[in-house]
């Protein structure tokens, strides 16, 4: 149909403070794509071609408006030396952290994204997606923030305790994690993706405002500053409950905030004049077992989202579950696609 914007066009208007015809619809379809493509998670997480094809296939099925390059939050920590366990039906998880003693931190350096760990998988996937559909679909490379990478290097419990017991060691580890994130971001950009920063562990469900400010936010800030130097629009995604830190988010410099357990209205109050919001149907609502009404939930989110002054992207609060029920995701996406801003011109 003539006159219908494509996803790239819609996003590009959103990012220059223009209202597109409607908010982009971008649920975080990550490893669920493997299920759509009918491959196992090990293939999906280790083969860039498969990751790319699965993403493209899922996008063709659902028609959501962005491709997501994401397997797990350990991607950088693994490339630096932590061991992750790959599994057929679930996402990779941390097996043994590299840093068993804080004295080891000094020897760490950023990985080479073109050779180390599964970083080349991301780069190949991005390159393939970009060549296949980069003109009409933005590609988001999910980059773990330093806080999350540091936890992957040190072990979650140990790293969280380091923030209390050995703050200097925690900062040293964060510094090298930051350098690694920058190195990886640069390669993802060159492959054609826009970095989307994810910091699941920097969640208000896990750490306090103070810990967030000192150990997570300042590194998010530095990473975002690096990307801003290239004039890139940065999405920051934090999982879990962020309601106690909403007011701090604009300080990171993030252009878009993708969030989970906070309501859109509160997020609008806290940052709606400066930050575009991306959210936030609870992912469990998409499971076959859930009796949450996707229609009701999405409608209410959309209603709030349309009012956010700086713009809105309809999404899920976190990753779409691997076993998501297709029909439920279709429902969310259709509601999004039927929403309208006032006439463009």
């Amino acid at each position: 149909m003539p006159g219908k914007m494509n996803p790239r066009e819609r996003w590009s208007l959103l990012l220059i403070d223009e209202l597109p015809d409607r908010p982009p619809v971008y649920p975080l379809v990550t490893c669920h794509a493997a299920r759509v493509y009918n491959c196992d998670l090990i293939e999906y997480c280790t083969d860039g071609r498969i990751l790319a094809e699965a993403q493209l296939e899922a996008q063709r099925l659902y028609g959501h408006e962005g491709l997501s390059v994401f397997t797990d939050v350990g991607i950088i920590a693994e490339a630096m030396g932590s061991k992750y366990h790959l599994r057929e039906f679930e996402v990779p998880i941390l097996d043994s952290p590299l840093i068993t003693d804080t004295a080891m931190i000094g020897e760490l350096g950023p990985p080479d994204p073109t050779t180390q760990g599964r970083l080349p998988v991301y780069l190949e996937a991005i390159d393939r997606m970009y060549s296949a559909a980069g003109d009409v679909l933005p590609i988001f490379a999910f980059i773990p923030c330093p806080f999350t990478t540091a936890a992957g290097l040190r072990g979650v419990d140990n790293f969280l305790m380091d923030t209390v017991l050995e703050p200097q060691a925690a900062h040293d580890l964060l510094d090298v994690s930051l350098k690694s994130a920058i190195t990886f971001c640069d390669e993802c950009i060159l492959a054609g993706a826009l970095p989307m920063l994810v910091d699941p562990l920097a969640s208000g469900s896990v750490i306090s405002r103070t810990t967030y400010s000192h150990f997570a936010k300042s590194y998010q800030q530095k990473l975002i500053a690096h990307l801003h130097r290239y004039d890139l629009d940065v999405t920051l995604h934090i999982c879990g409950d962020t309601s106690n830190m909403l007011d701090l988010i604009p300080q990171t410099g993030a252009d878009l905030f993708s969030f989970d357990l906070a309501d859109v209205d509160s997020a609008t109050d806290a940052m709606g004049d400066r930050v575009r919001l991306v959210g936030n149907l609870p992912p469990h609502g998409l499971l076959p077992s859930s009796n949450l009404s996707v229609t009701q939930g999405t409608n209410s989110i959309m209603e709030m989202g349309l009012k956010n002054p700086k713009g809105f992207v309809l999404s899920t609060g976190c990753e779409v579950p691997i076993r998501c029920e297709a029909q439920k995701l279709h429902t969310l996406i259709n509601i999004g696609k039927n929403a309208r801003y006032e006439e463009v011109w």
Binding site: C31, E90, V91, P283, H284, L287, P288, S289, C318, E319, V320, P321, I322, R323
Partner: peptide
């Protein structure tokens, strides 16, 4: 902790 494994819980 993960949305991806909520079905296991069920």
């Amino acid at each position: 902790l993960m949305t991806t494994t909520m079905d296991s819980m069920a």
